[in-house]
Amino acid sequence: MKIKQVEIFEVNLPLIKPFIISYATYPHIRSIIVKLTTECGVVGWGESVPDEHITGETPESTYAMLKNTLAPAIVGQNPMEFEKIHELMDKTVHRAPAAKAAIDIACYDIAGKKLGVPVYQLLGGRYHEKFPVTHVLSIDEPEKMADEAEEKIKEGYRSFKMKVGLDVAGDVKRIQAVRDRVGDDIAIRVDVNQGWINSANTLQALRKLESLDLDWLEQPVVQDDIDAMVEIKSKTSVPQMIDEGIRDMYDLRQIIAKRAADKINIKLMKCGGIYPAMKLAHMAEMAGIECQIGSMVESSIGSAAGFHVAFSKKIIKSVELTGPVKFTKDIGDLKESYIIPYIQLNEKPGLGLSIDETILAELTQNSEIVE
């Protein structure tokens, strides 16, 4: 079986409300969708959601990279030979993980469909039956974040990921307001997205947050300052998670050696797809570091890929893939699997999705075919 054709679509995914984090506000999500077709007619879908602040890629560069470099390189290759596909992509271009993730995900979708099994069966089989769904609170005024949390509890949510990182004093008020509103039995995770910059600011905040029983604090400092994470971890009882600071195996090797984190946030867009994500999970497991599969606010395609990784590994303890419930329109039907407060995957082959190509056409800004 060989790849015959690669179709590339640049799309704008419409959000219900703007997504606000420490370094950007997103009125919609720009995504690159890839459709691989084999000589025997099997179709696989992949997705890339790049972020210039994290992966070093933009939607424009990713579209061009897929069109001009990666797609031509993989035409004629066997999509089920994952190691060779990644070796070829890595020899063709250095890094560009989000672009490579689109190819990787589509190859796994093809392999699952060809063999008649869900992708998680290709990764060791299903371990988890279901995962709790965490609602993500975008940055806002303290009372508005608390209001949203209270409303989501009524819908069934039992855990929240709070986006903060604008200023330490204001962020402490935001976190305190949500904890006061939801009570002690609701899980709260705090994601700073590098916004507190350094260990001094972070430790100042943590002195005021120690009593709030946070599940963890995520990426408080700039992404490459591993030593700051080491210092913070040594001086607080709040578990520390690294996100932007863990992209690939080389980052994780340093994190393990320095004991810089209690948890890591694996994102397919940061590491290059399903295949390298599994390598990170195995490395973390050997080091006794718990994992999460995180989100770049992907459509059903990228989100489903992340879920298949998460459902297959014991060391993956949480997921934050909430893109499909944040969009007014999506090109896949993964939203049907969100039964709040849980998500449970189906047993259909491949990614297990039905793709609405009419909606895909409606949301597409540019497209290209490579043969």
Rank of each mutant, 00 (worst) to 15 (best):
K4L: 03
Q5L: 13
Q5F: 00
I20Q: 10
I20D: 10
S22T: 05
H28C: 12
I33E: 02
V42Q: 04
S48K: 11
S48I: 12
G56A: 05
E57A: 02
E60S: 14
M65K: 03
N68P: 00
A71D: 02
P72N: 07
A73L: 10
Q77G: 00
N78C: 13
E81H: 14
E87N: 15
E87S: 14
T92I: 04
A99W: 07
A101C: 13
I103H: 06
I103K: 04
A106W: 08
G112K: 08
G112A: 08
G112S: 07
K114A: 15
K114T: 15
V117A: 03
L122F: 06
H128L: 05
T134I: 14
S138H: 08
S138N: 07
D140W: 07
D140K: 10
E141F: 13
K144E: 14
A146C: 09
K154H: 09
E155T: 15
K163W: 05
V164Q: 04
V168T: 13
D171L: 03
K173T: 10
R174T: 12
Q176G: 01
R181C: 11
V182S: 08
V182L: 10
G183V: 09
G183N: 11
D184T: 15
N198R: 07
N201G: 13
T202M: 06
K208E: 14
E210Q: 11
P220V: 11
V222W: 07
D227R: 12
D227L: 10
K233H: 01
S234I: 05
R247E: 00
Q254T: 09
K270P: 06
G273A: 02
A277L: 12
M283E: 00
E285I: 06
A287P: 04
G288V: 04
V297Q: 10
S299P: 09
S300Q: 02
K313A: 09
I315H: 08
S318D: 09
V319A: 03
P324C: 11
F327W: 08
T328Q: 04
D333Y: 04
I340N: 12
Y342F: 15
Y342H: 14
I355R: 04
E357T: 10
L363N: 02
L363E: 00
Q365H: 06
Q365G: 00
E368M: 12
